[in-house]
Design a protein around this nucleic acid. Sequence first.
RNA 1: GCCCUUGUAGCUCAGCUGGUAGAGCAAUUGAUUUGUAAUCAAUAGGUCCGCGGUUCGAGUCCGUGCGGGGGCACCA
Length: 638
Amino acid sequence: MPNIKLPDGKQIKFDKPISGFDICNKISKSLSKNALIMSVNGEPKDLFFNIKKDSSVKIFTAKDPEGLDTIRHDTAHILAMAVQELFPGTQVTIGPVIQDGFYYDFSRKEPFTQEDLDKIEKKMREIVDRDEKTRREVWERKKAIDHFKKNGEIYKSEIIKSIPENEEVSLYFHGEWHDLCRGPHLPSTGKIGKYFKLMKVSGAYWRGDSKNEMLQRIYGTSWASQKELDDYLKRIEEAEKRDHRKLGKEMDLFHFREESPGSVFWHEKGWTLFQKLIDYMRLRQKRAGYKEINTPEILDRSLWEKSGHWEKFGEHMYTSTTPDEKIFAVKPMNCPGCVQVFNQGLKSYRDLPLKMSEFGKVHRYEPSGALHGLMRVRAFTQDDAHIFCTEDQITSESLSVTNLILDIYKELGFSDVILKYSDRPDVRVGDDEIWDKSESALLEAVKATKLEYSVNKGEGAFYGPKIEFVLRDAIGRDWQCGTLQVDLNLPERLGASYVDKDGSKKVPVMLHRALFGSLERFIGILIENYAGKFPFWISPLQVVVIPVSDEFDKYAKEITSKINSSGINCQVDLKNHNLNYKIREHSLSKVPILLICGKKEVDSNSVTIRRLDSNKQENMKLNKFLEKYTALNKASSN
RNA sequence: GCCCUUGUAGCUCAGCUGGUAGAGCAAUUGAUUUGUAAUCAAUAGGUCCGCGGUUCGAGUCCGUGCGGGGGCACCA
């Protein structure tokens, strides 16, 4: 005679075993209508599950994340159902819920076309209309395997084999159609609603392994209401508008071309942006005690063999054979070169910590399918630095690195940052004592930031633990950028040493650190974060002067030259177009400040300011303008 | 690298079932002299991604290579 405890503390006594439906009926009519699944003592269950013992029960509707997830899960199921109705012989595999939706992987010879997707979606709506009741059966493992095998569902039988022995094998039925599933599911197909949409088809390896067969994955999205679906589609549209590849073209920042896939052709404006970031970082790093160096882009194979890169990452390295048959590699990383700078000359403990920064351009032969605009390229510039220090200095150096990184992110508009800390993997170099030391140093630095962080057990590099910095952009997307890694391996491999107090030679610890990781990628992130509308000080073209008519060209040219002399990037637009046209053109290319000048301005030696996305006008004496905007023309910390 | 998809003027795109290319914007020239998001007109502009094939004939069909896009795998 179960006694049911509800989340609000209320208890209901029943005189016989009951289902979720019974409980809902007891509570309210609307709940009976809206209930999707429930949890019994924390375990997710179907509403038709029979509760025999005293339990705490929670009912979920579409308003709960658990409810929405189940809607998505069920949408994936009816996707599979629709596919098998339309395309008999297609094998189903897995169909999990993912962020904002779900996918289902199928095995079928012929590829699904866009028309197929439309057909499938229509069929799914039919299935919802049929409102078929959900039925759950638990099968004996062997029987289930044989059953799916007999039906040609090889993948399903594989999945059953991998279910742990102590778990039951459950099948969910909708009419004749059934699928292996842990559940829970909605009581009937009608409960799904019709706020779903199939988004795209793509390939995906069975069990995520590139050695396996490639399946066809259909992605979909599913929501509890039309409004949520519309909002989601709108969100995607907004993200597309910010696409850095699109904006890069529109704003004339850079382009790509066939002759060098994955390498950027920077245009003047894009390169100005690039240089501005470097200038800013130089300033900050100099202040933080870094010494900037530069090392060769092409280095003899022997160095890469010594560093271990040749063996581990050889297939991703560009190499070059000289006319006299020597093999050189284009650097995929800056560290070996930097260690060689350290190695030149004798170093004393008094030199430590020695912080060497390098804006090094590296080349990596990335798989063609990985390339993506500026986000994933084959040639990029790292804002790299290597800190050589003693074991005792790891903590303080880590703290100063995290401070610098977070401060610079903030200045560039990213204050929402989370950290990922990774500790020792099973296969590693170095003794445990030094691992203990480096791990606690990094963890201390992580904690000192007071930011949210995750611990990734065993995810560190074989040569040391690491922190990764993930920043969240204006539309909530996460980008992993910065990194701080302890390296207990490379200095030794390349024979780095310093003379300690007692006159003995010691191997220094090396910290690798990068803030943006790749300047190219970071610019991509900046573009998308700001939707191309950069803050004044970063903007590559900051001011455009527009004379009202060619009568005022002379004045416009004069003030343009004065503004440029003050260090602000300014252009004058003397083209034979009217004012409206020019305002539109420069607004679309996202110039932050337009200065309009006509008779009024010439007479009073002033400018009229029009800011991007505002049609307010502000008149100001030229001197005042220069004063105000030179002050704005740098990061606030400078 | 793998699966799907795609490649036409500087840009965005049209071109039905094969009959040797078209628009808008941009560019150039001329007119207009403009006060806050597109002034008007004329002109010029294309090995329809490359290579091969089918065909009397290919932007269109087939094969192949390269590039782009969406995923998967990869990301020191």
